[in-house]
Amino acid sequence: MRPEDWQLTYDVDDFLARAGDFLRSRPGPHVMQLTWAERVRARGVAAFGAEAAVFGVLEQAGEVRGTFYRLLPRGLGLSPLTPEQAEALAARLAALGHSVPSVSADHATATAFAEAWQRHTGATPARSDTQVRLYGLGTLTPPDPMPAGRSRLLGEEDVAEAVFWCGQFAEAVGEDVTVDAGTWAHTRFADKRYILWETPDGTPVSVAGMNPVIGGQVQVDVVYTPSALRGHGYAGAATTEATRAALAAGAKDVVLFADRSNPTSNALYQRLGYRTLADWALYDLSGPARAVG
């Protein structure tokens, strides 16, 4: 395999025209590829910087075998790749002088690329302490009984409430982002819909967010209950209602990520009918470099 087999483009429409069928053929493992390509398409490349958004397609014998996106400052996102494919991509990006501050993908792919990047650039990879697991919905199994209360879908008139909840979530998980009225439109939270679970008196106690339907799939993203309110089944109720809303919107597949170090949330999602698709890894590639022979 030659590094030149990886074809790069700054045009997201060109990328989706060439790789869209490949990505939609396995929407679960390709969830981040589909999500970020659609965000770039919807918001325009200018929103990410002239050369911040780069996409790539690996074609062999007329068929797409792999893809990537690179968004600065987020880093590189990969479809599942073999070690040989990851090696060729690392060689290609290094030869072109592309900055790759980090890489995220399924564990085997991310690890293969991080090791290859070190070989080609000398950069020392550092694996993130936060490791997540990708789940896909089997058969939804709602909690029985559901906690007392009801769900409420936030509308356009509820932006301030969405900003508040997403700000609380970002702070709780240590996400390096400012979420307020001024920054909202430029965050990853702005293109989602949100469902609140409210107690019988109307007090909101938990939130679950949903990405748009992309490639026939919805990612449930942002599930948060304030620490003082946990243990009452509110997150399970909110996640159930978000999942139902995703299915009602036409999603054939529903996926979500969970922090592998949190046994409570992982057990919850499994009780609701979600099944493991892949373990995910993130490597920081901005570490000190050594000379490459």
Rank of each mutant, 00 (worst) to 15 (best):
P101G: 03
S286M: 03
D106K: 08
G273H: 05
V163A: 09
T187S: 11
D180P: 07
R74S: 10
L93K: 05
A238T: 06
S128I: 09
T111M: 10
P263H: 14
D284I: 13
G202N: 10
G174Y: 13
L282V: 08
W184I: 04
H120A: 13
A235I: 03
G20D: 02
A190I: 00
L268P: 10
H30S: 01
H120E: 15
T240V: 11
A258D: 05
G28F: 09
L137K: 01
R193V: 01
G149P: 07
R24K: 15
W117K: 02
E161S: 13
G209Q: 07
T183I: 09
V218C: 00
L76Y: 13
P142I: 00
G49Q: 11
V103F: 08
R18G: 13
T225A: 08
A208C: 05
A267K: 09
T276H: 12
A245I: 04
F113K: 03
V103Y: 06
G250V: 01
E63D: 15
A170V: 05
T178V: 11
G28W: 03
G182E: 10
S99E: 15
T141F: 08
R290M: 11
L272G: 04
L78V: 05
G62W: 06
L72D: 07
V207I: 15
P83C: 14
V100D: 01
G233R: 00
G250P: 03
W280I: 14
A245P: 06
D259F: 04
V292E: 13
G174A: 04
Q168S: 14
G56E: 05
R244T: 03
T109Q: 00
G236L: 01
G20M: 09
